[in-house]
Amino acid sequence: MMGWNLDFITEEQFKCHVRATIMKYGEKLESYDLKRFNSNLIDPIKLIFDKSVYRTSWEEIVNNEIFRQRDKSSNNDIGYFHQNIFSYFKGCEVPQAGWDVIYRNPEGIQMPDGDIVHTIYVEMKNKHNTMNSASSAKTYIKMQGQILEDDDCACFLVEAIAKKSQNIKWATKVDGKNVQHRLIRRVSMDQFYAILTGDDEAFYKMCMALPGVINSVVNEEDSVEVPNDTVIDELRNVASLYTDQTEELSMAMAVYMLGFNTYSGFGNKIIQRLGGKNEGMLKRIYEYAKRLG
């Protein structure tokens, strides 16, 4: 195993932070059953279009939808990783409120335009395009207020996924007017790491260490519970209620019932159109629909 080459965080600290981030995934690591799968109401027609257009199996399209649902709510957890790692960096504080990160250096921090400041106040975003105009204006005004209060500081909007590596004046609009200030800056994550550590490749080195540490944590006994999703099996059980139909149409019916179980033309009428007269089958389908809520 290669030696640890991150000077700004120990291997044990990094592993601890990765473990805490994985634990933040919380309920997203819980297994999906059919009710949870449909808790935000699946669009059955989109699911069927996607399956056909992308030429995937039912299992693939269902698993993709489960992944999408998990992924939709995981950005905050990755935000936790990006923000809270700085609690291990020399001179950094991760406050409970106010700013995402505050960095202080009594020896001074040189800005690209030549200014020397001793504190940087940071607002952090996962991606460069996640702020609307109102949010941008509010954040900029907050930064303006901080600089008026403390003329020995700079304010950074740090973006984990910026358009490019950069440390530039943040130009935006407030009340319809173009504004910018040399001490209010948009900074990509790699350049923020460089400011804190003095190493231009610090962020790169962290990224290179990350996969191995994640795998190490995930493979630790009982550290991460592997989800056991049952959605596709439950859908197949429902599809089996629609006898004398092709497997494809039976699965389509099970998917339709996720979103349309109370719609006109579904339930007993759809069974009649399929040629089904079995009252027991009808009762079981109604029970299924009721369980989906």
Rank of each mutant, 00 (worst) to 15 (best):
G79E: 11
N228Y: 09
E12Q: 05
K15Y: 04
I61H: 03
V226K: 14
E60S: 11
C92Y: 02
N76P: 07
D115Y: 03
T139Q: 11
Y193E: 00
F67R: 15
G108Q: 08
Y288K: 06
M143E: 06
R291D: 15
L41C: 14
F81S: 09
Y288D: 11
T130Y: 08
E247R: 12
F192G: 00
V226Y: 14
N129H: 12
N215A: 13
A252K: 11
Q146H: 00
E234D: 07
N75R: 11
G176K: 01
D175M: 04
I141H: 06
W4G: 09
K177A: 07
G79S: 13
F192S: 01
I78P: 03
K169E: 04
Q180W: 05
N167M: 03
I120A: 01
F260I: 06
T197P: 03
Q96S: 12
V238C: 09
N38H: 01
E93K: 12
H17S: 04
M253F: 13
E225M: 10
G276Q: 12
I147M: 08
M23H: 12
E11I: 01
G108A: 09
D151C: 08
T56S: 12
F89T: 03
S73P: 07
V218W: 13
F260Y: 15
V213I: 15
K28I: 12
C92P: 06
F86N: 00
K127W: 13
F49G: 15
S264L: 12
L183M: 05
S74Q: 07
C92M: 09
E11T: 02
V255Y: 00
Q180C: 11
Y140A: 08
C207V: 15
T21S: 11
A252Q: 15
W170N: 01
N64R: 14
S135C: 07
K142M: 09
F14S: 05
V122Q: 03
K277L: 11
N261P: 11
Y193T: 01
E107L: 10
D200P: 10
Q146S: 01
G198T: 10
D43I: 13
V224Y: 07
V101S: 02
I78E: 09
N129R: 12
D113G: 04
D152V: 02
D229R: 03
H118F: 11
N268A: 15
E65P: 05
A134D: 14
Q83T: 03
V255E: 02
G26Q: 11
L292Y: 14
Q110D: 04
S223D: 12
N64M: 08
S31K: 06
V255I: 10
L274C: 14
K142P: 05
K24P: 06
F86L: 01
D113I: 02
Y80P: 00
V179M: 00
W4Q: 06
S250L: 00
E107Y: 08
E11H: 04
L235P: 02
I214W: 06
R55S: 11
A171N: 13
A209E: 13
C153G: 07
K269W: 07
S250H: 01
S74R: 09
I61C: 09
L282G: 10
Q110K: 13
M257C: 10
E225A: 13
Q144V: 06
I195C: 03
T262S: 14
D200F: 10
D113L: 05
Q110Y: 09
H128R: 11
I45L: 11
I184R: 00
G114Q: 05
N129D: 15
I22H: 03
Q272T: 04
T21C: 06
